[in-house]
Design a protein around this nucleic acid. Structure first.
Lengths: 352, 352
DNA sequence: ACGACTATAGTAACCGTTTACTATGAGCTT
DNA sequence: AAGCTCATAGTAAACGGTTACTATAGTCGT
């Protein structure tokens, strides 16, 4: 088999380059770094040797010598959730633009795996770790994050909380958020303006920051429209397609619909609920109006009116926060959300 | 601001641990590695010091001393494409199970970025890099891959081609594939069995391995059913939602439909085409049948009959291939595909 | 013509681990 | 009691870079 001249170069070190160029290792290092005057002739001899040998630096050696490895870790529950995928994508792009490697790690929602990843990143001396996604902020959680924050900060690693609430001002952590409650307020108002009064909120999950903020916006909109808040219309059950399907199915099994519109906690809940409604012979939007949250790509396909979250921009913002870190740099970014109107809401003609 | 005891530990080294435990660094290293006999009393002194100081090893130092950093890179066009997301997810999980870090990198389809990532991985001395996704295998492409393969192999890094064709037997690269043509054959047969004869293939892109394999399966199924292949029914235009929309729109603009069924190159194409059909007042499956490819999650929501690709398993297989690498280990994995029947195909009642 | 200065290159210490080699004392054997 | 072996721990040499410090040869001013 034909093998290129560059094949057996395991262990091509800076020493080999120096030898071939007939200079010292220091000179090679300097030519490559370009931060020290070198004679043009020397420079070209070195570059020649680098090409001939197909040399690449060893980041580990370089990191040991004190040059950051320029690595950022993004930690999400799962990349398969579109929201997380877009956040990760944005982070990746921003990191690449800033000349950094971007590690995307998944935990499957398991705190133990999260802990393991944080430890791994400490070992790697990463520049930053970005923890993405909703949480239920128990005391235990806050303690855990605070501990992470200190341990990471001690290793010179920045901690960014993305889409989850900020920690106290004493804790060395940055925060990138989006306006969850605002979007919920807007989309609820949209339903109210169409005349709906009995709006089912599907997927509240008391304690979860994301769901709580959305319920909050929902309630505030109702209040501002002088519609009484009915706790019986807030169905707990979390997010995701199966949850949406189950919640709607159970609701319909319990009796005739006592609502004219549905606010699904996220688009996946909407998709699940939609299927349950369809199976029960109810059409959207003819019989029931529905809105979602997130503006997942498929929302366009099913014509779902929903709230757009700037997920990609959120990822970028998180990375920027982490990278552009002068000591006086902002410690927090808050992104806006907006409603996108499609075809899943109809004005209420026949009140319940 | 109050700082915890564990806070200023930047540079807590093995030396600090040794000092605090009153032993030598070698002993600490041995206790931590657990590969050398140590007295129980010593062991516990060391562990105590490790906890007190909240010490974590420095992977760079360790890597330099010859212990692999246990890192795998998965390179995809974009994580936001569900197929890639699932491959990445599978790879991530398998890597985690094997105790390895998994880097997910995106190129946006840009060969320059791909090259940059390969270089980065050489610098990192990664265990493996997994290149995922279809390609158009020009001579240039083959040369590039061959070069990657040799350079990586020289640095002790395995190259895995995932969902793209294998290189020559002389090239040090592994391959994880799935049966593209087989799935296309099956789903085309499904349409043919329902009586369809004029089946539009949407999104052929001559030269692209994925699309070519699907077209190939499509043609073979037609041939086996003695239906003549009509090149006019194969619409080039690539994959993705916008492409699907555009192709169908243009096709419909050119005149009344001359097909009764559509084989969309992938599910996104199907989604786009679906929208174009809907806008033209045509219903699926009442007026035209449609099948897709990939079994993206949203396919369930729009009731699309499609071909399931074991994406997650593909990612896992790629990692296994890379990790379980004895020299006599298999060099190639081929995964099966299967059709999943939903509600987008109807028997042809009124032939064109 | 001589010292000061500049441009460039070399020398060697250091970064934090791992591990081959060496040292030490305790418990046996004969 | 000398000589072994064994268990355990220490010493120091890598690993592959970076960079402070040092050395050398021109250049220039006077």
């Amino acid at each position: 088999m034909p093998r290129g001249r560059t094949d057996r170069n395991e262990g091509v070190t800076i020493r080999d380059v120096a030898a071939r160029a007939g200079v010292s290792v220091a000179t090679v290092s300097r030519v490559l770094a370009g931060n020290y005057p070198t004679a043009p002739a020397t420079r070209s001899k070195v570059m020649r040797a680098v090409r001939d040998l197909d040399y690449v630096v060893n980041v580990h050696a370089r990191a040991l010598a004190g040059i950051s490895a320029k690595m950022i870790a993004v930690v999400v529950d799962a990349v398969t959730a579109p929201f997380y995928a877009y956040v990760a994508q944005g982070a990746e792009e921003q990191a690449a633009e800033d000349g950094r490697l971007c590690l995307i790690c998944t935990t499957g929602g398991d705190p133990a795996r999260e802990l393991a990843i944080v430890k791994l990143m400490r070992e790697q001396r990463a520049d930053a770790v970005i923890l993405v996604g909703s949480v239920v902020p128990s005391e235990d959680y806050t303690a855990r994050m605070t501990q992470y924050a200190h341990a990471l900060s001690a290793a010179g690693t920045r901690l960014v909380l993305c889409g989850r609430p900020a920690l106290g001002p004493d804790v060395p952590a940055l925060t990138a958020e989006y306006d969850n409650a605002g979007g919920a307020y807007a989309v609820t108002s949209h339903l109210l303006s169409a005349g709906h009064r009995r709006i089912l909120f599907l997927g509240s999950s008391p304690g979860g920051t994301t769901a709580d903020a959305r319920v909050d916006g929902y309630r505030r909109a109702l209040a501002d429209h002088r519609v009484p808040v009915d706790p019986g219309l807030e169905v707990p059950g979390g997010f995701g397609r199966p949850a949406g399907y189950r919640m709607m199915r159970e609701r319909l099994a319990a009796g005739a619909p006592d609502f004219t519109a549905v606010f699904a906690g996220d688009d996946l809940v909407a998709a699940g609920a939609l299927q349950a409604l369809r199976e029960a012979g109810l059409r959207v939007p003819e019989d029931v109006s529905m809105v979602g949250y997130n503006d997942d790509p498929f929302a366009a396909d099913i014509g779902l009116t929903t709230v757009h979250i700037p997920a990609e921009e959120l990822g970028r913002a998180a990375v920027r926060l982490a990278v552009r870190g002068a000591d006086d740099a902002p410690v927090r970014a808050m992104l806006g959300t907006h409603i996108v109107v499609r075809d899943s809401v109809r004005p209420l003609t026949r009140p319940l």
